[in-house]
Amino acid sequence: MIASLMGTFFIYSTAPYYSLIWGAVLSSCLYINPILSQNPRCRTACGSIPINYPFGIDDGCGSPYYRHLLLCRESGTLELWTPSGRYPVRNISYSDPHIILTDPFMWNCQDMDDFRPTRAFSLDTSVRLSLSPQNEYLFFNCSDSDVIVEPKPIFCERFPDKCDSSCDSASYLCRHLPECASALRESSCCAYYPKVTESLRMMLKHCSSYTSVYWRNLGMSQYDQVAEYGIRVDFDIPVTTLCLQCQEPLKGGGTCGFDTQTENFLCLCDEKNVTSYCKDRSTSGHSRTSIIAVAGTVTAVTAAGAIGVGAGIWFFKKVRAKAPVTCGVQTNDNRLF
């Protein structure tokens, strides 16, 4: 069995200009000289999808951590850029921070037993995005001589230390494909959770195709879920005291943004950009009568409650930790059977 491949699932780093270190964030919060944003306006929606902090579809809006990631087409279609391509965004949730993507290359019900060439989905390590543990991945027509295709309960009883290596042919989703339970007539299916892009690529070398299914929450209970096709990508909402002050209605209700040259924090106001908040009389700003700023509040935490915490404190969404999983591909030299 090939050794475990550690890392975050589907992560592939290729864009060094996205990379920002913690010190750069602190310096942006302490930056005090007002600089004119190069962005003419901050749109708050793309089609029917709301665009709030930390995202922006206009340069200079939102957080620089997510700069150049979202593209709004003239048709109103929102797309997310990753190292593996451009993917349509189905929706964005800010209360439970995640993005739902669709991948037209993945298998769908209409394909049935006709498997098209596919590609491995990947994310960039330098941005604050991660594949959600609520995703499950189904592989079709995998080679028995190269991939361990076994019912997981039986395999785990025999090989508990190598349990994660098997592609589960007894998966609930394989037996109850969402929307099309009987779509596969002559093809095999198994469920597997590779941890890194290379593991996925190795699986796809020996399987005809794959698809991603995520569990959508219907209520407060973790058991109140329904399986749907798509890729759930989780994100963090970086919030500093300055950003909360900027968005506070009593302080002017500005929009959190950044200078497009330095990526230092800016509060985008109706007539000027400042480095504190719109009604701060002690801070001068550059005129920006052509700039339309709309507040994009993303948290119920008030600025007054956050000031005591101090600038530079981040609120991250807790993501469930999962144990590393091996890639599941075997060769003639390391086969278990």
Rank of each mutant, 00 (worst) to 15 (best):
S27M: 05
S27N: 10
C29F: 01
Y31S: 14
Q38N: 13
C42F: 07
C42E: 03
G47D: 04
G47H: 06
S48L: 11
S48H: 10
P50I: 12
I51C: 06
I51M: 03
N52H: 12
F55T: 03
F55L: 08
G56H: 07
G56W: 03
I57H: 12
G60S: 05
G62Q: 01
S63N: 15
S63R: 07
P64A: 10
L71A: 13
C72W: 02
C72M: 06
R73L: 12
S75W: 02
S75A: 08
S75I: 01
G76Q: 04
L78E: 05
E79K: 08
E79C: 05
L80M: 14
W81Q: 14
P83V: 04
G85Y: 02
R86V: 01
Y87G: 07
R90Q: 11
N91S: 10
D96S: 12
I99N: 01
I100Y: 01
L101M: 07
T102R: 15
D103R: 00
N108G: 11
C109M: 08
Q110S: 13
Q110M: 10
D113T: 08
D114Y: 10
P117C: 09
T118H: 03
R119L: 08
A120L: 12
A120G: 12
S122E: 13
D124E: 14
T125Q: 10
V127I: 14
R128K: 06
S130C: 01
L131G: 08
S132H: 03
P133R: 04
Y137Q: 08
L138Q: 09
N141D: 15
D144L: 13
S145H: 09
S145Q: 11
S145L: 08
I148D: 14
V149I: 15
E150P: 00
P151T: 01
K152D: 08
C156T: 13
C156F: 00
E157Y: 07
R158K: 15
F159Q: 14
P160F: 05
P160G: 02
D164S: 14
S165W: 11
C167G: 12
A170W: 05
Y172G: 08
Y172V: 13
C174G: 12
